[in-house]
C-alpha cells in the first residue's frame, strides 16, 4: 500500500512538473518562434494520443488518423467560416462529427482482420483526403480554406495573442492526457490491452470485443477531431494536405519514437520529432530520409520507444537496488505490482 502511495505520488509529481514547465514556458522561451513550434507540437500530440489508444493499447494498426484529423479541422473551419458559428460550438461539433464517422468506419473495419484492417483504414484515410481535395464547392479544393476565424473570446479572455492560444492548446492537451491516463489505469484500459494480447481469450472471458474496439476507436477519434479543430483555429488556413496519409505516417512516427502504450510517449515523441524537424529546417523536405530509416530501427529494436526504453532501464536499476536491500526490507512482489496497477487514482 505504502508503495502504491509512493507510486501515485511520483506520478503526481511528474504531472505537476510537466504542467509547471508548460505554464512557465512562454515566459522562459527565448523567442516567440519556439512558442509557435511547441503550440503546434501540442496540437499534434493530442492527435497522437488518439492514435496511441488504438495502436498502443488496443493493438490495432489504424491508418485513418490523418483523415479524422482533417475531418475535424474542416468541420470546425467550415462551421466557423461559412456559418459564422462560434469556435466553442464548432469545436465540439468537429469532435462529435469525427466520432460519428469513426464509429461508422469502425463498425465495418473491425469486422476485417490483420492486414485487411490496416489496408481498409488506410483507404478510409485516402477517401477522406480525396473527397476534401475534390469537393471544390464546399472545401475550396486544393486552395483550401483561408481566413478561418480565431477561437472566439470567452468573456474577458480572448485568444488573439500567441500566448493565449498556447494556453488554450495546453488546456486541451492536459485534458487529453488526464482522460487517457484515467482510461489506461482503469479496468477499461486493461480490457483494451487484453484485446491487444488475445482477442479470442478476451471473447471467451465474456468481453464484448467489438464494443470495446468501437469504444476505443470513438474516444480516439473524439480527441483527434478536437486536435483538428484546434489546428484550424490556430493556423487559420487549412488545405487538403492535413488529411493526407503522409500525416498519419508522421503521427505513427511520433508515437513510436515516444513509446506506444505509455502515457508520456505521445507527448515526448511528438515534441522531440517536431523539435528536431524544426531545428533541421534546412532539410525539412528530406527529413524522412532519417525518419524513415529511424522508423524501421525503432520498430525492430525499440518497440517501446524512448519511454519504453527508459522504463525498462528504471526497472533494471530498481531490481538491482532491491537485491541490495533485500535483507533489510523485502516487499512482496505481488503487492508491489498490485499497487502499480492502481496507478494514478
Amino acid at each position: 500500500m505504502l508503495d502504491g502511495m509512493k507510486k501515485s505520488n511520483a506520478k503526481l509529481i511528474a504531472y505537476g512538473g510537466f504542467l509547471a514547465v508548460a505554464i512557465a514556458f512562454p515566459f522562459i522561451s527565448p523567442n516567440r518562434y519556439y512558442l509557435t513550434v511547441v503550440t503546434l507540437g501540442f496540437i499534434y500530440a493530442i492527435a497522437v494520443y488518439g492514435l496511441n489508444l488504438i495502436v498502443g493499447y488496443l493493438g490495432q494498426l489504424s491508418l485513418a488518423q490523418a483523415g479524422f484529423f482533417g475531418l475535424g479541422a474542416y468541420v470546425s473551419g467550415l462551421l466557423s467560416l461559412k456559418l459564422h458559428l462560434s469556435f466553442w460550438i464548432s469545436l465540439p461539433m468537429a469532435a462529435v462529427v469525427t466520432t460519428l464517422v469513426a464509429l461508422l468506419v469502425g463498425l465495418i473495419s473491425f469486422r476485417t482482420r490483420g492486414h485487411y484492417f490496416v489496408i481498409f483504414t488506410l483507404c478510409i484515410g485516402v477517401i477522406i483526403n480525396l473527397v476534401i481535395e475534390k469537393w471544390d464547392d464546399l472545401t475550396g479544393g486544393v486552395r483550401g480554406l483561408i481566413g478561418i476565424p480565431r477561437p472566439t473570446s470567452i468573456g474577458p479572455i480572448d485568444f488573439i495573442s500567441l500566448e493565449s492560444q498556447y494556453y488554450l492548446v495546453l488546456f486541451f492537451l492536459s485534458l487529453t492526457i488526464f482522460v487517457m491516463s484515467q482510461i489506461a489505469s482503469s479496468l477499461v484500459g486493461r480490457t483494451f490491452k487484453s484485446i491487444r494480447n488475445s482477442e479470442e481469450l478476451a471473447a471467451t472471458l465474456g468481453i464484448n470485443v467489438m464494443r470495446n474496439k468501437l469504444l476505443a476507436f470513438g474516444i480516439a477519434a473524439f480527441f483527434t477531431g478536437i486536435a483538428g479543430a484546434l489546428f484550424a483555429g490556430y493556423i487559420r488556413f487549412i488545405g487538403p494536405d492535413i488529411s493526407n496519409p503522409h500525416l498519419t505516417f508522421e503521427f505513427l512516427l511520433f508515437l513510436l519514437i515516444g513509446g506506444q502504450a505509455t502515457i508520456a510517449g505521445p507527448l515526448v515523441g511528438t515534441l522531440i520529432a517536431t523539435g528536431l524537424t524544426e531545428s533541421l529546417q534546412f532539410m525539412q523536405e528530406y527529413r524522412m530520409v532519417v525518419f524513415g530509416a529511424l522508423l524501421i530501427i525503432i520498430v525492430k529494436f525499440f518497440p517501446g520507444g524512448l519511454v519504453g526504453a527508459a522504463m525498462k532501464l528504471k526497472t533494471k536499476i530498481e531490481k538491482r537496488m532491491n537485491k541490495a536491500n533485500k535483507s533489510v526490507n523485502a516487499p512482496s512482489k505481488g503487492e508491489n505490482h498490485a499497487a502499480k496497477n492502481r496507478g494514478f487514482n
Partner: peptide
C-alpha cells in the same frame, strides 16, 4: 507494416 512504411518514406 510499419517497417514497410518506413522504407517507403525513406
Amino acid at each position: 507494416f510499419i517497417a514497410a512504411v518506413g522504407a517507403m518514406l525513406f
